[in-house]
Design a binder for these strands. Structure first.
Lengths: 195, 195
DNA sequence: GTCTATAAGGCGATAGAC
DNA sequence: GTCTATCGCCTTATAGAC
């Protein structure tokens, strides 16, 4: 609730711009106008645009990590899945996609540090989903057509592509399909943990 | 085998550039140098860059349609799946992704005609996969966790994201995972059609 | 830290000769 | 159809005053 520093505002609005228009879709001028400073002030904090995008991806990833760690792993699997999926449909309109999804077309033009940060984000999600699937299997879910690690990659990939497709089609249809696959892998559990 | 026209060469190299660097990642200058003409000649055939990208997406989609129609639907389902997946791992290196995948970050900045062409490509693939899944179900495949149409969307989405991720990670791991899910949905069939 | 001013170059696009 | 020449604008980035 504290007044954000200029630096924090820059990262915050950079996240919005990347999620809306991608790396090449916004300029320092756009960002400067949003924050209410001049473009040269951005260069003071982030000498190059690569520095800015690196910070943005790391911040985005850190927030995701915090959100995942906040999900109580003793909850029923289906409830954990619900909480994972909850923020994905976020905005009322689909003009905001995943930061990593928006940047992934430009990956070959990105510095190594940004690529690493994007890989971290992807693995973070895949591994959380793989853990959930293993837990689901241990708790009596129906057998999977694939090993948990591979199934996690498929589900996360379909979710990511679903978010992108939501902008193309204006519908959450494909996100929902991926969510349904995840839900189908969850066991039926008693609402109360004690048996 | 005929000598390609300048126009054909422009579309051909535009496809390569889009698949490598995305819409904002190449310029008329890049394309002109590849084809061996001046930038003003590109404007003669394609007055704006939007016109060029529209033609490229339509051509890409038309080729895909032709390839899908060339797959004999009387073949065993698993063999049809194999032929669908075959061209995906195309290039030795992963520096070429799907045209529609590369453009999808810029979708909100694209003219309506391009969006429609991208939707067509997506539906073309999803519908082909849904048909295959229905055929598989009719031929005795194990029951699916989702209706064929939804499962097709998940598999296509995971494949698309897998192609993008191949550039990020330098591995076909995620494409393979999606392919494995498709394979798991195929029935066991006799190699010969006559029973 | 933030500003004004500007560099240095890329971009898509156009006009008009040939 | 293809060229030369150029326009007008945008971009990232820097220098230096305050």
């Amino acid at each position: 609730m504290n007044t954000p520093t200029v630096r924090e505002q820059l990262v915050e609005h950079a996240l919005v711009l990347i999620r809306r228009r991608g790396f090449n879709g916004f300029s320092y001028r756009d960002l400067a106008e949003l924050v209410g400073v001049k473009t040269s002030s951005i260069h003071y904090y982030f000498p190059s645009k690569d520095d800015l995008v690196l910070e943005a991806v790391r911040e985005y990833s850190a927030r995701k990590r915090a959100r995942l760690q906040a999900i109580d792993t003793t909850l029923p699997c289906a409830e954990q899945a619900r909480r994972y999926l909850e923020p994905l449909r976020g905005g009322a309109c689909a003009d905001q996609a995943c930061v990593v999804g928006m940047l992934s077309a430009d990956v070959l033009a990105m510095p190594e540090a940004v690529r690493v940060a994007m890989q971290d984000f992807t693995r973070l999600n895949e591994q959380w989903l793989a853990r959930l699937l293993e837990q689901a299997a241990a708790r009596g879910a129906a057998p999977f057509p694939l090993p948990p690690q591979q199934l996690a990659q498929v589900i996360f990939g379909a979710l990511q592509n679903g978010l992108t497709s939501a902008r193309l089609f204006g519908t959450w249809e494909r996100v929902d399909a991926a969510a349904a696959l995840l839900a189908s892998a969850m066991p039926v559990e008693a609402a109360l943990a004690e048996a």
